[in-house]
Write a protein that binds this DNA or RNA. Structure first.
Lengths: 222, 222
DNA sequence: TGTACATCAGTGAACGCGCGTTCACTGATGTAC
DNA sequence: TGTACATCAGTGAACGCGCGTTCACTGATGTAC
């Protein structure tokens, strides 16, 4: 079936990008071949280079697309809740759910592609796409955090994000063992309940004065 | 140089395992070839199957070896400190340091190999090696946590581990950007200072009563 | 609106390459006497 | 202790395979008249 209409060709390009976002997250960049990606869009491998300059270039677009999907979902969740705290709780709850562990292809690329991105050279398209996408998600989370100023809310969002991403990553790597569910539960408990504070180290290597408590309330809605 | 002494052959096997632990962490399992591994031990690729049944089998041994190295380091850190809180602080501080971000080959396999392990089938040798190794590290950390009983200390260790692992993973994926250092700093602040408690969600999807504060002190030393 | 033809999206064979694994071979090691 | 020989750690060519990428080709699309 050579030569399809321009609208069909554009649709093919989007199908390839969409399938790539899912398959790259599931199997990693090197775990999916160009033939796999084209096959997922119902095409054969030869036409790939009519749409993308290289597999690396597609990886950058696919990662940007995947982060865009996640950001859209996060914004909808925040908007569906009556206040910031409830928005934040919904994001955490969805992120640390059992389906999130199982459905890697539907989940957040920040976790499933972190290792692939870290191993890529600084110039690879995938790296800047990852950084931009992650900054956007951190920004959405910071918008529903509690804190005296924007900097404190950003720090809170970054710490929350680290806990969520680590728990999900480790829950996936230990899937099938009890430890897997314990990661989800322990992280959710720490993020969603008023947690028992970690013990202030008596002789920590880098001791610091206790940070002032955040009591100011902000009013803006993300 | 065919046929070396048995002692030399055993030394070669250990060199291969050691090099694999480092290289697998740096580049991923699929990022290192059998020829690379043998070359790192000063050998040619053909002799590999005299030492290991397959690359997968070696991966299992290498992961176990890498976790063993990390566990030994953690135990020494704990033993070097006057009390549990200081031991915990030292573990967190080393885990979330700048060298830890840079030197992937020397760092903890729980972070660098999590995605590789998660993508492997449940029967792969690497999966059980990873699970056993991670349980050991969680156990060491639980031994220096504060909490009313062993279950609470385990939960605290698991939540701490998620935060540390997530922060390191994300710091590596964003290396070169300011966000990278922010992940280390925000996670360290949350784990090592008495943190400002996360806001109790007013209408969370899964609301729960606030957990009772842990005040009991334990005395045992890990 | 109808015809003639240039464009170009997609096909499938082919390229060079590196992979994990196998195997015939080599010659020092280790052992039996 | 010295000799004869079986063992086997390591070599390097070779295997079948899948990869990313290229390219001559096909024929419907899109356009110029």
């Amino acid at each position: 079936m050579p030569r399809v209409s321009r609208a069909e060709a554009e649709s093919h390009r989007q199908q390839i990008t969409e399938a790539s976002a899912r398959l790259f997250k599931e199997r990693g960049i090197n775990g999916v071949s160009v033939a796999d990606l084209m096959g997922a869009a119902g095409l054969t491998h030869g036409g790939f280079y009519g749409h993308f300059e290289s597999k690396d270039a597609l990886a950058g677009e696919a990662v940007a697309h995947a982060f865009g999907q996640s950001a859209e979902r996060w914004r909808k969740r925040v908007a569906s809740q009556p206040d910031d705290a409830a928005g934040r709780a919904l994001i955490v709850d969805k992120f640390l759910s059992a389906p999130s562990v199982k459905e890697v292809g539907l989940g957040c690329p920040s976790v499933s592609l972190a290792a692939d991105v870290a191993r890529e050279s600084a110039a690879a398209p995938i790296r800047s796409a990852y950084l931009d996408g992650l900054e956007a998600l951190v920004g959405i989370l910071a918008g529903v955090e509690d804190g005296p100023d924007a900097a404190a809310r950003r720090r809170a969002a970054i710490a929350d994000y680290a806990t969520m991403a680590g728990a999900l990553m480790l829950a996936r790597a230990t899937e099938g063992a009890p430890l897997s569910g314990e990661f989800l539960a322990a992280a959710r408990e720490r993020l969603l309940r008023a947690p028992a504070p970690a013990p202030a180290p008596a002789s920590a290597p880098a001791p610091v004065p206790a940070r002032e408590r955040a009591t100011a309330r902000k009013t803006r809605k993300a």
